[in-house]
Design a protein around this nucleic acid. Structure first.
Lengths: 370, 370
DNA sequence: CTGATTCGGGAAAGCGCATTCCCACTGCAT
DNA sequence: ATGCAGTGGGAATGCGCTTTCCCGAATCAG
């Protein structure tokens, strides 16, 4: 028994397919009450389910939203995905998921696949990369997006625009003030940790999100009259944080065995502590785990801060200082800004994009030594 | 500029649409080399992207996999989703996401939507419910799945079968040995905590996953010669765990202020500790947070264990004793078992479904008191 | 009571592609 | 030279639905 079709419903109801279509799916023309009832009854007596593919083909629009993330199991992306999902539901659309591990080549393919499915809009979350080895991929991606937009697609990018993207029509960017927030974090940290040296654990060079946060942090430090922090680069995940954490642990132990009151490193008689800024929470957690595994305690032997304020990580102890980002809202905003209708564009003109605001959140992991 | 069509490509290449179709998409008949080249060249000079909707309509199959979860931001589901996504990629399909907060009514709608999109298969993760208020929704869901399967769809359910599902054709269940594993956990805990009383923090009555784990744990306790544990019911998330944790904290403090050596509660002169089993990690973390907020320490004032071994929570301290579940594999297995082909069915006959195995993992949170 | 409008319904033309059928042609054996 | 299968390409049909166009009937003004 194959799924029943509109034609069958129409026949059962004794009307034409055109009429059946008009009553079953929102059409401008409303058939008479009695006919409508007959059709509707026929429809659910047959268990009729409209074929979305055929509908899509006929009106060339699919009710699909494409979402591109690096990794859906990463809580950062999962949170954004939740927002996207919610907004999609509001719009009566479904979300199509693609994960790419951040490879622009894969992202290009994902965009092509979405385009093939005639997705109404595409949301790209996850940091853009400016690394030279990605430049080919980025160019391809930009071209693909270009084409997609020219064919009427709407795309929203979280964070940084895609490198080399030329179109403006239908291309939206949800700005995340990474740099400013990182600067604020730095300045608050500088104030609360007057005697600490700072070090940054960053992601790979060229990752915009990472680079912005590093730059902002350095700037905040400079404004507070602090010297620039050293930057350790590693991968943008827990493992990267852990690795960098091991390096730092060794250094801390070498500098002051048994605590920071060892053989005074610094011109003042007073020993200097170390404050670590990891460019995201997951890396911070990794670094913290590394320190702990080396017998170091936080915030006693070093202090640490992250970025994102991942919900699942809030129960981590010592509570992680970080910058809160409304991840779910970001997903929602991105999805809405790519909702692509005349109304939406009018709105967009009025409010180019509801600004994303974060908040520095200092917690126990950078608390003053008692 | 609308997206170019196969016909345009064919015209440019000077061949018929049929031929173009044959070269551009895997067809049994391979046109001649020269023609193939011409077509391919025409295709990418036009930036041709096949219209998946039309393809789907024509061959009635969409290359889509529907995934139903309660909440994509929940790390449990996010992990499963990752597995599903990977398997989908292997199969050259894309995943369509639906979140339902566990409401059978929403799940039914999601299935209908997937059916409308002619998804090749559907993976349902997330606990089934047997609560009476859900019985109507469950029946509807079962009916919808039934219809979907009869129309050739493949369904894989993680954990428990949908209540009332009648079809067998195309209906797969990935069994998760919740009960057995919970029993093992109980027996190991009983051995390592000989002097503890046990208490269980469960989800709402009627949630299969929760009920299975509760039942298994009780059984394990019984086999170890321990009396049944009291069961506290609350919601299946962190908040629920937190709430139950507060209740328990009050109880612990009342029983033995300042530690468990207070006014001896028990026939032996020796005070008894409390070992808490929360039916999932997230609840366990919530309960732990509640205890901590009440000034209690783990494992000193109480010990606690969870279930799932959520990756993001592994850095939690004290490290949480739990039951490891290969979440990602589960997603992968479910997706593969619903891959729905003759070959897959032959495989399925050979290996009904690659068994999911978990592992009791005792860590610091239930460590022997020193 | 007639002519100009609506109004409600049906017929039919695609949407973009896969696929079946058909045909012209080649190569081979007879 | 003639018949045969085999091969490679094109014409045409249909997937299920939307939508334009058309037409008969009903409504209204004059």
């Amino acid at each position: 028994m194959a799924a029943s079709t509109l034609t069958e419903v129409a026949r059962l109801a004794g009307v034409s397919p055109a009429t059946a279509s008009r009553v079953l799916n929102g059409s401008a023309r409303k058939p008479g009450q009695d006919i409508a009832d007959r059709v509707r009854q026929a429809a659910d007596s047959l268990g009729y389910i409209p074929n979305a593919q055929a509908q899509g083909l006929a009106k060339s629009s699919s009710g699909l939203i494409g979402l591109i993330v690096h990794d859906i199991a990463d809580p950062y992306f999962a949170a954004i995905a939740r927002g996207v999902q919610e907004a999609a539901r509001e719009q009566g659309r479904m979300v199509l998921l693609a994960t790419t591990a951040g490879a622009p080549g894969d992202e290009k393919e994902a965009v092509a696949a979405f385009a093939a499915r005639r997705a109404d809009s595409i949301v790209i979350a996850g940091s853009r990369s400016a690394r030279t080895e990605d430049s080919k991929g980025n160019a391809d991606l930009a071209a693909e997006l270009d084409r997609y937009c020219r064919n009427g697609g709407q795309v929203a990018v979280v964070g940084h625009p895609v490198v080399g993207a030329a179109v403006t029509e239908g291309y939206h960017v949800v700005e995340v003030p990474n740099e400013e927030l990182a600067a604020s974090l730095a300045s608050e940290l500088a104030a609360s940790r007057p005697d600490d040296d700072f070090v940054i654990i960053g992601g790979p060079d060229g990752l915009f999100t990472s680079d912005d946060r590093v730059r902002g942090f350095q700037q905040g430090l400079a404004e507070a009259g602090r010297p620039p922090a050293e930057v350790l680069r590693s991968s943008f995940n827990r493992a990267g944080g852990y690795e960098a954490g091991l390096t730092l642990a060794a250094r801390i132990k070498a500098a002051g065995p048994g605590g920071k009151t060892g053989q005074g490193n610094g011109v003042h008689g007073k020993a200097r502590g170390l404050c670590i800024f990891a460019v995201n929470d997951v890396m911070a957690i990794g670094a913290a785990a590394a320190l702990r595994s080396e017998g170091l305690r936080i915030p006693r032997d070093a202090t640490i801060a992250g970025f994102d304020d991942i919900e699942t990580l809030r129960d981590f102890r010592p509570a992680l200082s970080t910058v809160h980002l409304p991840l779910e809202d970001i997903g929602r905003i991105a999805t809405r800004s790519a909702a692509g209708s005349a109304a939406a564009e009018a709105d967009a003109a009025a409010a180019p994009s509801p600004p994303v605001t974060g908040r520095v959140t200092l917690r126990r992991s950078t608390e003053m030594a008692s």
